[in-house]
């Protein structure tokens, strides 16, 4: 007899309206692709929260290591030139 499981862990991403980004909603358990989509639908869109769903097995998520936060994220702190408010526009300039 096979050992009992609670099936595999999946991550669920929901798009609330077309054009908007897919946002992590939470996790579910399921054995196969179809079950994962159906479970995600039954659990995370009961109140019309979504129009589209992505699921993927949690084991395929690669996450950054918090130890690397200095290296990964601090360098962007001083690059204000990437933000539009950095630039001074002449008085009266429109549509820019």
């Amino acid at each position: 007899m096979a050992t009992d499981t609670q099936l595999d862990l999946w991550e669920v991403f929901i798009q609330s309206k077309s054009g908007l980004p897919y946002i992590h909603a939470g996790s579910i358990h399921a054995s196969d692709n179809k079950m994962a989509i159906q479970n995600a639908r039954d659990i995370y869109t009961r109140r019309g929260e979504g129009t589209s769903i992505w699921v993927l097995p949690s084991k395929h998520i690669v996450a950054s290591n918090p130890d690397d936060n200095d290296m990964l994220f601090d360098p962007s702190n001083d690059k204000v030139y990437r933000h539009p408010t950095f630039y001074v526009m002449p008085e009266g300039a429109k549509n820019i």
């Binding site: 609670q6 099936l7 579910i28 358990h29 079950m35 479970n39 039954d42 659990i43 009961r46």
Partner: peptide
């Protein structure tokens, strides 16, 4: 048989 399916059948 699993919590997810419980919710599915309720739907």
């Amino acid at each position: 048989p699993i919590l997810e399916e419980d919710l599915a059948l309720t739907n």
